[in-house]
Nucleic acid binder design. Structure first.
Lengths: 233, 233
DNA sequence: GTCTATATTCTGATAGAC
DNA sequence: GTCTATCAGAATATAGAC
């Protein structure tokens, strides 16, 4: 089982700890860490180059020296973030050897681990996807090319649902539900915690529990039938 | 049954159609419509006052004449958006007379209708909630005060789960799942459509189907049991 | 490579004519 | 109420010293 790509990232806090132990971190890396945290939390427009420089503890001019422009730096961070998202899809969704049920378990585990390691990633990804609904940018680096990985997984779901006959739910519901149950809790953790009276540790336990629960839920959802409408399946 | 508050909003497209039929729309309203669409789609920092003015077909100075500042205008729009979200919670979650199962059905119907009428609202709400995870702003107008409405609903869920004994899932899972299944599809509709090969009409049909499906799914999820961990329930 | 100082562009807001 | 013109400050980017 491969580790979430994102978990290996160096964050600003770890960087500062390292420097206390006289471990030198290059200015380039300091800038990248700060930029990653700020861009992922606040997005492109709300993040100021001065904030990145200040957080990194370096001079503003160095940012342009290493990365030419704010835009270029952002594209770099975005690409890294989207790779973390895409890696799971390509490697897991597209695996032709793995059975559907096991695949669901692996997907849930992969993403929950990745998001626990980088809490702001889900909101960032949602924001990117949502932005593209208004400004479509096909065929460039922002577009998440995943080949036919999704199709492989979708076919497996379709096949499974065909046993239920024409009253089975649309396969799109299954994929949607899977992603919903994984993503959403991370984007609304404060609300969840304050409203259900939970602390940070409770939240982590709940997310760990979901690794086992979501696959069970997804499987049971596929038992549901509905009067079919005219959508191609 | 009350209609989604948001559905009554005037959008820029409708405004232009109205003007073709010689119906006059005030400049103030034009600005507000444009601002609502842009702020909801792109957020505060990415939206420029010049863009709002251009979209509204009025002069930049008028924006400040009517609303004093970009910040004030944003707060107005945000308040309206959050009311649409909060209204459902306060009126439905907090209803002590309604049974849990019926309540779930009403909540799903209310939010899906509201989000079909204003597609960008879910992403906006998620963005606001997420932003507050980094910059908490208690006790001000941004904070979504919902009183004890959520508690009422949470207690109903707790009571229902108690029949399953100590191995029942935590009530927070149920609320989380409910909101996840409602919100997420709207924030990722482009991805959903492109990956499952659906068009806009298919998407709407799927969302309509979900009004019936989500309550069924939520009820069946509550049948799931798990080895209890030490979170207070 | 890293800094200070500065140029340049962008953006929110206002003054004042009509 | 609505516009044109303009200002003041913010934000990105660069020049040039060390």
């Amino acid at each position: 089982m491969f580790k979430p790509f994102i978990a290996t990232y160096l964050c600003v806090a770890k960087m500062k700890t390292a420097e206390k132990h006289s471990i030198k971190i290059s200015a380039e890396e300091k800038i990248k860490c700060s930029a990653r945290e700020l861009f992922t939390q606040k997005g492109f427009a709300a993040t100021k180059t001065r904030d990145i420089a200040e957080k990194a503890g370096i001079n503003l001019a160095l940012l342009n020296y290493y990365f030419r422009s704010k835009q270029k730096l952002y594209e770099l961070i975005m690409e890294e973030n989207m790779i973390a998202f895409r890696t799971g899809i390509v490697r897991l969704f597209g695996d032709t050897a793995m059975e559907m049920e096991e695949k669901i378990e692996k997907i849930v585990e992969y993403y929950i681990d990745a998001f626990l390691a980088n809490r702001d990633l889900p909101a960032f990804i949602i924001s990117i996807i949502h932005t593209h609904q208004h400004t479509p940018v096909p065929d460039n680096k922002f577009y998440i090319s995943i080949g036919n990985a999704q199709k492989v997984f979708l076919e497996q779901i379709k096949k499974h649902l065909q046993k239920k006959g024409i009253n089975a739910i649309h396969p799109a519901h299954v994929i949607t539900n899977l992603m919903s149950l994984i993503f959403f809790p991370f984007t609304s953790s404060t609300m969840l915690k304050s409203r259900a009276g939970l602390n940070e540790n409770d939240f982590i336990i709940l997310m760990q529990e979901r690794k086992k629960l979501i696959p069970i839920w997804i499987m049971s959802m596929m038992e549901t039938t509905i009067n079919s409408k005219n959508i191609k399946k």
